[in-house]
């Protein structure tokens, strides 16, 4: 197990390096200098050179990358063009807002997704299975804003239960009211994946030898399902949950824009529209790193749940 974790950590460092290069290259090397991107196509070349120098994006690419990454590692992503303040300050508060939204989303979607998948598996090929599977698939591929706008129409405009958007401040109840619609929107997208993986895992586990053994031993149905089937079915579900984290994080972009919720997603959308390159690079780098950490955690949990890896045999 220790060997596996160390190997996986080493891989994560390599991945992180590649990630930083990708972000840097995309933002800096592609045609059109940073200064040109800020000032627009009609600005004088001298002004463009001037702003490039001020931002430290002159000099060789290698030295630029080194300067960027050595500061980034220490949490210094430079100053935002738009707000004229340190990127890190804005990033931190937006990160906290997005975390609240993401956590509420997971609290809603994980139990419902697992339950939905398990029901579908137990009633395989019956009507309820088809309904859960097809609904899940359809919701998973529908862009978040198309789902969000329908939710806003019903729950914010018609029923007036919750606001149509805004920031999560104030009491827990007020925050919950703001967060619930975007969280349900994101949950709708994730539900299908989780249900699908749980369904596949459960069907496989139901057919496995250990399940038959458990049944033949005379264990109760609920004990067989809870201990033998679900435990094994959840393994692939955890893996898919982690791989969906990057979709969840990508979904924040659109969902937070839809609900005007001031998290990382809205920050990134605004930074892109304002061509605030330091902010954009930092935010994409942070989100990418976060997605990678989630994948790492999921891989380790998966490994830990899998005795073949836990007890050290090479996989």
């Amino acid at each position: 197990m220790a060997r596996y974790v160390i190997r996986r950590l080493g891989l994560a460092v390599v991945t992180l390096f590649i990630l930083s290069v990708v972000v840097f290259v995309v933002a800096s090397v592609l045609p059109g200098s940073v200064g040109r991107a800020i000032l627009g196509p009609f600005a004088l070349q001298e002004s463009v050179d001037q702003i490039n120098k001020e931002l430290g994006v002159n000099g060789s690419l290698y030295s630029q990358y080194f300067r960027w990454i050595s500061h980034a590692i220490r949490g210094d992503f430079g100053d935002s063009y738009k707000f004229q303040g340190p990127v890190t300050d804005y990033l931190a508060s937006a990160f906290w807002s997005s975390t609240k939204l993401a956590v509420l989303t997971l609290i809603i979607v994980v139990p419902i997704g697992i339950l939905g998948g398990a029901i579908a598996a137990l009633r395989k090929d019956q009507a309820s299975d088809r309904i859960i599977t097809v609904t899940g698939l359809s919701l998973a591929v529908t862009p978040e804003f198309a789902i969000g706008i329908v939710l806003i129409l019903f729950f914010a405009v018609k029923l007036r239960w919750v606001p149509a958007g805004g920031s999560a401040d104030g009491s827990i109840i007020q925050q919950f009211k703001v967060l619930i619609l975007p969280a349900v929107t994101l949950s709708a997208t994730l539900f299908g994946y989780i249900a699908r993986m749980t369904r596949a895992g459960t069907i496989e586990a139901l057919a496995a030898d250990y399940t038959r053994t458990a049944e033949l031993k005379g264990l109760s149905r609920s004990r067989v399902l809870g201990v033998h089937v679900l435990r094994n079915a959840l393994l692939p579900t955890i893996a898919v949950l982690a791989s969906q984290m990057s979709y969840l994080l990508g979904g924040l972009l659109v969902t937070e824009t839809m609900f005007n919720y001031k998290g990382l997603g809205l920050l990134i959308a605004n930074a892109a529209n304002d061509r605030d390159i330091p902010m954009l690079m930092a935010a994409v780098f942070v989100v990418g790193t976060f997605a990678m950490i989630m994948t790492l955690i999921a891989d380790v949990i998966t490994a830990w749940l899998n005795p073949r890896i836990r007890f050290g045999s090479h996989v």
């Binding site: 990708v22 990508g250 997605a291």
Partner: peptide
């Protein structure tokens, strides 16, 4: 590991 829409936006 990167959300596609983010890198697309960056580019």
């Amino acid at each position: 590991s990167l959300p596609v829409i983010l890198v697309a936006l960056l580019a």
